[in-house]
Design a protein around this nucleic acid. Structure first.
Length: 513
RNA sequence: GGGCCGUUAGCUCAGUCCGGUAGAGCAGCGGACUUUUAAUCCGUUGGUCGGGGGUUCGAAUCCCCCACGGCCCA
């Protein structure tokens, strides 16, 4: 096709940066303009559908040709053209809607010369409306014999290749909409994610938990050991932090008499990005009054089993080629037992700061001379034990130094009533009997403040308001946080947290598309 | 932060070792075709080879820097 160089140049400047750089995009635009010139509205919004592709397959998937012929019913559907096989006087296309794909047979003889001529200008990627009756093709495929077809929304860019789809991992994350169009498995992952969250919500509701929403912007970033994102409120002229955990607010609610609360929502941590970490991630936290961390172990087994039974229909599944068995009860080990079992270090070696430090150094665990014994023990645990906890395992008896919000164990005040759940070497949940003694809480915060001053960026700050809340008395309570993204990874066999987050964080790219 | 790998047409990829006119399939465009389904057949367009610098008569290819991404490690 010839073009007027001068004219196109002028048009290009008018349209600025969005002017089509490639011939392919220009052609698409030309074709759209031809349709427009023929009186076709490229973006109408006056059609109603009465079925989805999935409906038709569910209802008529098994029906034979004769049955379909006798139906005499007209079905109205809409969807995106995903494939196109055009002949001179008839065509097969397949359209995709939220429930699936269905083939459509479009005949010149039936829809008329004029409409067939327009239809031939429709592209893969366009949204169209079709109505027609059902029949079976020679090869037996359930197909709609269209009596009309109409453009609903014109696609101005080519979709990725039909056979290989979109595989470039960067493009899949940056242009998730294309990933969702082209990769059914990606879409399925997010459908399952929604189902998992719905199941957890149902599980909690059935146990009389109240779902709440607490602030995302905190004047003090507390409730976890992590670096926060900082922001600023102009009118109040104050620094705020995106929350690293909802914990301290949820416990204020328990003080307020909300004996069973949960929240499923985002927390933010200003730390590294990896296959297990996204700067914003989803946690469920819940608090249950008159319960202990031991009660929560049972509840956690029940909850995760409940979800697994619904998703898999069984408690056995495969994650990344490894068999996982969620059949309760799950093994329980103390931190020291686990270190002894997996690293062969006798528990006595972990009792003194000096010998623990030696062991940590030997194992290349990241420690400093000033670290407390508890901190060193946990560094050893992380270095040598975590990755080995493949089957679901509760680890208990954490050192008090690394658990500033947990209740001290009644039989030994150096430890707290806490557990973490590991599956496939990953921390999935963290729970404890809550520290509700305001004086002890103040001491713990002071200890944290001291650690912060000596350089630990992740240590807690003093939260006087929270202590005041505790002084009004919080009932004996147990609480837990569950990493939803990691749970979804397990249940969808996803290797990276980015595969279960719709829009994972990436560096912005100057040059795009 | 460190190591390794990657970035070539709209998409999926060759070409890089060993420097010499940038290729294929799909998509697109033109034509034929009323039961195809990765439709087929004939013809055909399309590229700042991620960016910058260097070496060279000559660089997608060799060297340096940078950007973005992936995996592993910290």
């Amino acid at each position: 096709m010839k073009k007027s160089a001068a004219g196109d140049g002028a048009l290009g400047r008018d349209k600025g940066a969005m002017e089509d750089s490639s011939e392919l995009l220009r052609k698409k635009r030309e074709k759209a303009n031809e349709l427009k010139a023929a009186g076709v509205d490229l973006y109408p919004n006056d059609m109603r559908v009465d079925h989805t592709a999935g409906d038709l397959i569910d209802i008529y998937g098994e029906a034979n040709g004769e049955t379909l012929e006798r139906l005499g019913e007209t079905f109205r559907l809409a969807g995106r053209i995903m494939a196109r096989r055009v002949f001179g006087k008839a065509s097969f296309i397949s359209i995709r809607d939220r429930k699936g794909d269905i083939q459509v047979y479009i005949r010149k003889e039936k829809i008329g010369d004029e409409l067939y001529g327009l239809f031939r200008k429709f592209d893969i990627g366009d949204f169209i409306f079709i109505s027609g009756s059902l029949f079976r093709t020679n090869t037996g495929e359930l197909t709609i014999d269209a009596d009309t077809v109409r453009l609903l929304s014109k696609c101005m860019r080519p979709l990725p290749e039909k056979w290989h789809g979109l595989t470039d991992i960067e493009a899949r994350y940056r242009q998730r909409y294309l990933d969702l169009i082209m990769n059914p498995a990606a879409k399925e992952t997010f459908i399952i994610r929604s189902r998992i969250i719905r199941l957890i919500r149902q599980f909690m509701m059935e146990r009389d938990f109240l779902e709440v929403e607490t602030p995302m912007m905190h004047p003090i970033a507390g409730g976890a050991a992590a670096k926060p994102f900082k922001t600023h409120h102009n009118t109040l002229d104050m620094e705020l932090y995106l929350r690293i955990a909802p914990e301290l607010y949820l416990k204020r609610l328990v003080v307020g008499g909300m004996e069973r609360v949960f929240e499923i929502n985002r927390s933010f941590r200003n730390e590294g990005i990896s296959t297990l970490h996204n700067p914003e991630f989803t946690m469920m936290e819940f608090y249950l009054a008159y319960a202990t961390y031991e009660d929560l172990m049972a509840l956690t087994e029940e909850m995760i089993s409940f979800v697994a039974r619904d998703i898999f229909g069984t408690l056995q599944f495969v994650y990344q080629g490894v068999d996982i068995d969620l059949s309760p009860p799950w093994p329980r080990m103390t931190v020291k037992e686990a270190i002894s079992a997996f690293a062969g270090i006798s528990p006595e070696r972990l009792d003194s700061q000096e010998s623990a430090l030696n062991e940590a150094r030997r194992l290349n665990a990241p420690v400093t001379d000033a670290d407390s014994t508890g901190k060193i023990v946990m560094a050893i645990f992380e270095a040598v034990v975590e990755e080995k906890l493949i089957q679901p395992t509760f680890i208990t008896r954490y050192p008090v130094e690394v658990s500033p919000l947990s209740r001290r164990s009644s039989d030994n005040s150096d430890y707290v009533d806490r557990f973490e759940l590991f599956i496939y070497g990953r921390e999935i949940a963290n729970a404890f009997s809550e520290l509700n003694d305001p004086d002890d809480q103040r001491e713990r915060f002071l200890q944290q403040v001291a650690e912060k001053e000596s350089g630990d960026e992740e240590a807690h700050e003093m939260d006087e308001d929270y202590i005041t809340a505790l002084e009004y008395a919080m009932p004996p309570t147990a609480g837990e946080g569950i990493g939803i993204d990691r749970l979804v990874m397990l249940f969808t066999d996803s290797p990276s947290i980015r595969d279960v987050i719709l829009f994972p964080h990436m560096r912005t790219k100057i040059k795009n598309a």
